[in-house]
Design a protein around this nucleic acid. Sequence first.
DNA 1: TTGCGTTATATTTTCAAAAATACAACGCAA
DNA 2: TTGCGTTGTATTTTTGAAAATATAACGCAA
Lengths: 119, 119
Amino acid sequence: MKDLLRPDLPFRLNGRLWMEGPDDRFMGIGRLELLEKIQEFGSISKAAQAMQMSYKRAWDLVNSLNQQARQPLVSTQTGGRRGGGAVVTAEGQQLIMEFRAMQARFQAFLEAETQRLAE
Amino acid sequence: MKDLLRPDLPFRLNGRLWMEGPDDRFMGIGRLELLEKIQEFGSISKAAQAMQMSYKRAWDLVNSLNQQARQPLVSTQTGGRRGGGAVVTAEGQQLIMEFRAMQARFQAFLEAETQRLAE
DNA sequence: TTGCGTTATATTTTCAAAAATACAACGCAA
DNA sequence: TTGCGTTGTATTTTTGAAAATATAACGCAA
């Protein structure tokens, strides 16, 4: 493989992994990071801001996640002391853990293939 | 994982794999299929047509491939009996084989992860 | 009761990627 | 020498996704 590539350019292997339902994506690296930010800030809008994403997009993603899950993964409330907020549920936390683990195994796969590539 | 998902919807794991240079993608499943179609038809325009892709897009992809390769992966000629045509070079064929093999290993990874998912 | 910072939602605007369109050059064959 | 089906290239148009914008509802606190 290496002998096919221009030697003056640095090439690397990359990839994406996701879970999908019949007509919508369910989980991917972007949604994973969003869930983690919501957990960190307790707010969809703050999470969106931190990811430089519009609130609408973030909300749509959360909605899509919740619609496809058996139990809500993010629970929200409007009004109140801090204006409202969002919490990642126990189920959401489980999803974060399991998908993070899958991502880690995928990274390992990519690194193994990158080794092969150098041959 | 399975217990988090709506039981009435069929979910599946999916993914993409690609090689990239500093400012351009080099190889991916789309380019792989395009190379295979060019090999099949001996023509960029026929390959594009078969993939329901505009000729310009197909040509741009071929150009990008050739620019980043040490040796041309597709060689073309204009005019002549059949109006011209395109041939996948030996190097191009090697790329097809190696990337196909990598894709196969990726599929195996996806299936292994899908097993895990069902637990 | 007013202000604040959220969630929730609809609508409009922007942007970039792809497609569509147009056309010149090429070289063989009729 | 004309026509044909390519490659090669520029320009315009379309399209779809995301951002931007706007606004209501909510519920606590000052």
